[in-house]
C-alpha cells in the first residue's frame, strides 16, 4: 500500500503543476483576447467608412479597374488564417475543416497562402500548392503586417494569376462563439460589398451613417484615380480585419480550452485526493492489524 500512496502523490503533484500552467495560460489568453477584440473594433470604423465610399463609387459607374473585373474562375487563391500554436481547442480544426470542404467543392484549381503555422502545415500535408506562408505573425497583428500579404494578393490578381481570392478566417462573435468563415476578397463585387457593409454596421455602434448621393461629389484628381487608390486600401483593410478577428477568436478559444483544462484538473485532483486518503487510511489500518497480529502471535 505504501507504494500506492507514493504513486498517487506523484500524480497529484504533476496534475497540480499542469493546472497552474493552464490557469496561467487562461489568464494570458484572456488579456490578449481583450486587446485583440479592441483592435478589431477599432478597425471597424475605418473599414465601414471605406466600404461605404466604395459601394457608392461602384454604383454610380462601371469603371474598368482590374480589381473590380470578374473573370471566369479557373484558379483560386485561398488564404487560410490559423494560429501559430496549438492548445486552443477546436479553433484550427474548425477553420481547416471549413476550408477543406470548400476546396473539394471548387472545380477550379486552388492555391493556398497560409497565415499561421497550422494552416501552412495543413496545406502541405494535403498536397495543396502552398505559394506562401506567413508564420511570423505576432499575437496582435498590426496594420503593417497585413500589407505584404495584401500586396502579394493584389499583384497576383492584377497579373491574372488568380481569378478569385478567398480568405478563410474565424469570425469573432463573442468570447464563447466563434465561427469559421469564408470571405471573398477579390474581385470586389457589389453584392459582397453590401453584405459585408451590413455586417460591419450591425456590429459597430456607429449608426449615424447617411447614404449620400455621389453624383454631386467633386473628385480630386478624378474618379478613376480615387477608385484606383481606394481599392487596394480596401483589400488591405479587409485582410487586416480578418487577421484581427482570427486573432481575437484564437485567444478566446484558447482561453475557453484552458479554462476547461483547469477545471478538469481540479476535478481530477479532488478525486485523486479522495483515493489517496483512502489508500493512506487502508495502509494505516493494515499496519495496525499487522502489529496487533504480531503482538498476538507473541503471547
Amino acid at each position: 500500500m505504501a507504494i500506492n500512496t507514493k504513486v498517487i502523490k506523484r500524480r497529484l503533484k504533476s496534475i497540480g503543476s499542469t493546472k497552474k500552467i493552464t490557469k496561467a495560460m487562461e489568464m494570458i489568453a484572456a488579456a490578449k483576447m481583450r486587446k485583440a477584440v479592441n483592435a478589431a473594433i477599432d478597425t471597424r470604423a475605418y473599414a465601414g467608412l471605406a466600404w461605404e465610399l466604395l459601394v457608392d463609387l461602384s454604383k454610380t459607374q462601371k469603371e474598368q479597374v482590374p480589381l473590380l473585373a470578374t473573370r471566369p474562375v479557373e484558379k483560386i487563391l485561398m488564404i487560410i488564417i490559423t494560429s501559430n500554436r496549438g492548445l486552443c481547442g477546436s479553433f484550427n480544426a474548425n477553420i481547416i475543416k471549413k476550408t477543406a470542404a470548400q476546396m473539394t467543392r471548387e472545380k477550379a484549381a486552388v492555391d493556398v497562402v497560409g497565415i499561421g503555422k497550422k494552416g501552412a502545415d495543413f496545406a502541405k500535408k494535403m498536397g495543396y500548392n502552398l505559394t506562401a506562408a506567413f508564420t511570423n505573425m505576432t499575437d496582435t497583428p498590426n496594420f503593417d503586417d497585413a500589407l505584404p500579404i495584401a500586396k502579394m494578393v493584389i499583384d497576383a490578381y492584377e497579373k491574372k494569376s488568380y481569378d478569385k481570392v478567398i480568405v478563410a478566417y474565424t469570425d469573432f462573435k463573442s468570447a464563447l462563439v466563434q465561427t469559421a468563415r469564408l470571405r471573398q476578397v477579390l474581385p470586389i463585387s457589389e453584392s459582397d460589398l453590401e453584405k459585408t457593409l451590413a455586417e460591419i454596421t450591425e456590429l459597430s455602434d456607429d449608426k449615424t451613417v447617411v447614404k449620400n448621393n455621389l453624383t454631386d461629389y467633386l473628385f480630386e484628381p478624378n474618379r478613376l484615380d480615387v477608385l484606383k487608390i481606394i481599392l487596394p486600401r480596401l483589400v488591405e483593410t479587409q485582410i487586416y480585419q480578418t487577421m484581427l478577428e482570427s486573432s481575437a477568436s484564437e485567444h478566446s478559444s484558447r482561453m475557453v480550452a484552458m479554462k476547461n483544462a483547469s477545471e478538469a484538473a481540479k476535478d481530477m485532483i479532488s478525486e485523486l485526493n479522495l483515493t489517496f486518503n483512502k489508500a493512506r487510511q487502508a495502509g494505516i489500518t493494515q499496519e495496525i492489524a499487522e502489529i496487533a497480529g504480531g503482538a498476538m502471535a507473541l503471547e
Partner: peptide, 19 residues
C-alpha cells in the same frame, strides 16, 4: 494636404472626395 495641393475646408463646403 492633398495630391492636388493643400486645401482648407470650411463649413458649407461642397461634397468632395480627394486623396
Amino acid at each position: 494636404p492633398t495630391m492636388e495641393g493643400e486645401i482648407t475646408v470650411l463649413p458649407n463646403h461642397i461634397p468632395l472626395i480627394s486623396v
